[in-house]
């Protein structure tokens, strides 16, 4: 019968129309600004720098300014300058750490290549500003967030990272203790005097 397919299709639209009033599976719209979306734990958008304490973020950044992320970043949006003392010795922390979020493509490569777990992905997504240039170029003060924040947004990953870092720290302490013990033993027992040369 001509028109059967048409009527069948109209029945489907009618079912969806009526269903949208009582069936949540057929009305999936979230009224966004009023209802905030629930983000999955893995959600990522822009990177931030992890600091150990919230009180002194600049003093406790995990970043050692090794610049691996700067080199690996595909769109080249990271800019790092290492801090140096008066003698020019590297201080293993960033003097400048800028991320241009207008260039960043949220690919997470920086997080994957970082050997110090110093850079992680944030979940803040309402970042629109009225200033195109300066507001989107984030410096290290704006990027630094404490480890407790990381534990809050990515609990599984943070637990894993914390356990690994704690193990590394314990191993380093163990090693330092062992080295100190060896040193102490060396001081306590001075090396045996060289055997007297047999008189000619």
């Amino acid at each position: 019968m001509l028109g059967k397919g048409l009527l069948q299709g109209l029945a489907v639209t009618a079912k969806n129309l009526v269903g949208s009033f009582h069936d949540p599976a057929r009305y999936t719209t979230q009224e966004y600004p009023e209802v905030k979306p629930t983000l999955p734990e893995a959600y990522r958008n822009f990177p931030f720098l992890v600091s150990e304490s919230a009180e002194d973020p600049m003093g406790t950044l995990r970043c050692v300014a090794c610049q691996i992320c700067e080199k690996e970043c595909p769109p080249q949006c990271i800019f790092i300058v290492m801090e140096r003392d008066e003698k020019g010795k590297a201080m293993k922390r960033p003097k400048v750490f800028d991320i241009d979020t207008s260039v960043c493509m949220s690919c997470q490569i920086c997080v994957e290549v970082c050997p110090f777990d110093a850079i992680k992905m944030d979940q803040v997504f309402e970042i629109a500003t009225t200033d195109r240039f300066n507001a989107l170029l984030l410096n290290r003060e704006q990027l630094a967030k404490p480890n407790t924040y990381f534990q809050q947004i990515h609990p599984t990953e943070a637990a894993e990272v914390d356990a690994r870092l704690a193990a590394e720290r314990a191993a380093a302490e163990e090693k330092a203790k062992a080295a100190a013990a060896v040193k102490a033993a060396a001081i306590k027992a001075p090396p045996a005097p060289p055997p007297a040369k047999p008189s000619a």
Binding site: N16, R26, T28, P40, E41, A42, Y43, R44, M105, S106, C107, Q108, I109, M121
Partner: peptide, 25 residues
Amino acid sequence: MYAFREREKILDLFESLSGSRMMCN
């Protein structure tokens, strides 16, 4: 819109696995 409704469910799966709906990497 019916297709997008279903697609969104798949994209939710991608997001919870990879962290991003479309740019999964």
